[in-house]
Amino acid sequence: MARSDDEQWWDLLAGKEAPDASDEKGRQAKALRDAVLREHAAIGADIDAAASFSRFQARLERERPATGKKTREAGDTQAARGFGSIARWLRSLRGPQIAAAFALLLAIGAMVRMGLSPQADFVIRDYALGQRNYVQVDDPQAHQAKLAAELKALGIDAETLAVPDTHGAFVVQATIPAQSSEALLQILARHGLRGFRSGELDVGFQKR
């Protein structure tokens, strides 16, 4: 049964074959299709979903503030406690102990520099509890997926955020119930972090 002009035209515009259509109709539909596709591609050329997403998150937070969310102050308090312990330790030092402490700091500095392996795409840094730990890498999403998979292999249930946070980071979160194992420490070191003990693991991989 012969198909109507409209059906032929629809198929041709959708990029399908229409052997029963005339050559002229085929040429017209193809030209129109190419023109519309070209315009459509031009409109989408400058779309930056990550930047727009950050602006949306900020707007949502402003216009519909979160309820029951862990406050920033809580995290700051934990961090302050950590710094307080270090400060108390430094104040307790006397005479030669101060020199030893400086030597220790220099050694830590050297170790940090050694963390800049030519193969690694990040700088290894100490984990800070009570806040998101940002690591700058070449491929944030690859690091996110790999860390989540490695944690899962250790039996740790990690949560990944499929979209970047407000700082453009791809996040991995997990609760580490007991003292972290050597295997976990090695995994974290491969992703640019060291010194994590236990508790809430919160890592954000940003584009370097």
Binding site: F53, F56, L60, A162, V163, P164
Partner: peptide, 8 residues
Amino acid sequence: GELYYHEY
């Protein structure tokens, strides 16, 4: 947020 990021 995820919906926005993917559909934007």
